[in-house]
Amino acid sequence: MLGGFNEEQIRRYSRHIILPEVGGKGQKKLLSSKVLCIGAGGLGAPIIEYLAAAGVGTLGIIDDDTVDLSNLQRQVIHGGNVGKPKAESAKQFVNNLNPDIEVKTYIERLNANNVVDLFNEYDIVVDGSDNFATRYLVNDACVITDTPLSHGSIYRFEGQVTTIIPHKGPCYRCLFEHAPPPGMVPSCQEAGVLGVLPGIIGVIQATEVVKYLLGIGEMLTGRLIYYDALNMTFDEIKMRWNKQCPVCGEQPKITSIQEEIYGDSCRIW
């Protein structure tokens, strides 16, 4: 044992420990951190993969879906596990990659009743969900429980990603107050998605999580990266805190998580 690390850990994390910005102290911070991953699908796969490799000590994974053959075009952690719950498949992957990680699986849907207690157990939440109802539920619950959030979403060849530190910068609702009308935006199932796209967006999310836990660098707060794979461009959109934001504004209308808000449109009036 040296600095609290065993021989295997010294070798496993050596490339982190060598970095002046990480060192043994930073690696210990990662090992004592708790991150909740919403979804173990396209975005969740690279997020879980890299957070586990980095040595984030506790990974919560919530997903109520099972692995389908059509997932394997992009969900790189689920090989050989068609038919298994994604959360269990992800846990198996993590256990093989890094035995230091404690994985907590939740084979259920995130909802208004379980979200607050769940978020209170974690240092930061990473959203890899694929629908607006969950996305708004996650954003609002993060603001209400004061939990940092890495947001990512993908569509065909495009992705967007931002980091939300509640009450210190804008939230998702500051930019998009409510979801587009139901049926206006097709799902990945209907619209298709380039397999590598969630890899790029998910790895940016994982990068933000690691930086946040280490307390290094400039976070992607108040900024949204818009990525276009076809043109290979990364554009940055400035996000401003909206004083009228229904959840983090000066007079918020949403002060607790009420189930009826998180229907199709996530409108509150």
């Binding site: 040296l2 600095g3 690390f5 010294i10 050596s14 420990i17 060598i18 060192g23 043994g24 102290k25």
Partner: peptide, 15 residues
């Protein structure tokens, strides 16, 4: 190397 440096660095962090 590089564990010579990694281990030296970890020891220094304790001082």
């Amino acid at each position: 190397c590089p564990y010579t440096f990694v281990k030296t660095k970890l020891k220094l962090e304790e001082l």
